[in-house]
Write a protein that binds this DNA or RNA. Structure first.
Lengths: 183, 183
DNA sequence: GTCATCATCTAGTCATTGTCTAGATGAAGG
DNA sequence: CCTTCATCTAGACAATGACTAGATGATGAC
């Protein structure tokens, strides 16, 4: 359907291209018109699917939260926190374009229903993962432990994706962090 | 000198205004022309001081790294890691506009001399802060411990500034994180 | 005191972008 | 067959970043 009037899969293709572009040059380098050119449609076509630029990033973030929740499901069910930490960082490294926009409140429409739903699903997954830790390993209130656990995997992922930990193995670092934190 | 031909303090004023705007609406909402209007100069004036948009963010980040190094100096000299962690997060909360661009490689000119200098100074400060931890509290290689320590304060600061930890006290969280990590 | 130098700022221009509007296309279903 | 509506086209507009040539005046040498 690539040469018909109706593209047929434009929304998905735009999201994929946007993720690639964000991973390559950051959110600023994403141009709706460039994405449209790349997809072989006119510059106004993306607006129908995403409304505006913010809508594109919101859709990308929602997709990212969905993928993250999926990526964590196994280890959370296995109640293996160290593996959850590794899987979290591995998700970010494998999906840099998605991850780079997921927590950028300034780029997203926080009121978007799909975003809220996927974000809640991913958040519940994370909470469950930390809730299963052996209490004798946790020296601080459990709610703080949850936030600290999130902060550390987010910190590793963010710093690595921003190039600040260029010479480190992020997965190994996540494992070490889990051990030092709760081991 | 506000109404003379030469502004006299344009560079500093633009940086301050840019920090405020980044804190308010993120880097995307920063417009060189809007900053110029606000400062009462023409749209071309900022280019002389920063070259282009990237140069503005680079200068802002360099200033931020300098401020960060200053903010950490006391506690590092006192070899008090918990306080360093708190001071780090407190710096980010107090200077959200600076912090939001400091690690955004896509917005910065990594080759800038001033940026590299200030970044190195802040990095050395952080390394020194973690290097003084009691060895029997550290279960992982010291280099990983450094990275983990950085990741956790960066994670707390980032998540808080992005609004993901809206109901938490970031300083208290930093203290708790230090205790759980190395306490 | 005068003058040259140069950092600083002005003013105009251009391509590009996001967004809005009206309308064309064609797929899907009654 | 024909209506409906999601999808896409096409044109326009204001705003922006970047570039250029030139005006201004602060500074320091003589």
């Amino acid at each position: 359907m690539a040469d018909s009037y109706h593209h047929g899969d434009l929304r998905a293709q735009l999201l994929t291209a946007a993720a690639g572009e964000v991973a390559r040059g950051g959110p600023d380098s994403v141009s709706l018109r460039a994405l449209a050119r790349e997809a072989g449609v006119t510059h106004g076509a993306p607006a129908h699917h995403f409304g505006d630029r913010r809508g594109l990033f919101t859709a990308l973030a929602a997709q990212g939260f969905g993928l993250l929740a999926d990526a964590l499901a196994d280890s959370v069910q296995a109640r293996d926190f160290a593996r959850t930490a590794v899987d979290y960082v591995a998700f970010a490294v494998a999906n840099p374009g998605h991850y780079a926009v997921m927590f950028r409140a300034d780029l997203l429409d926080g009121a978007d229903a799909e975003l809220q739903q996927e974000e809640t699903r991913a958040g519940d997954m994370l909470r469950a993962g930390v809730g299963m830790l052996p209490p004798d390993r946790v020296a601080i209130p459990v709610e703080q432990a949850r936030q600290v656990a999130w902060a550390i995997v987010h910190g590793i992922a963010s710093l690595y994706l921003d190039g600040a930990l260029r010479h480190a193995d992020p997965a190994a670092l996540a494992r070490a962090a889990a051990e030092q934190l709760f081991g």
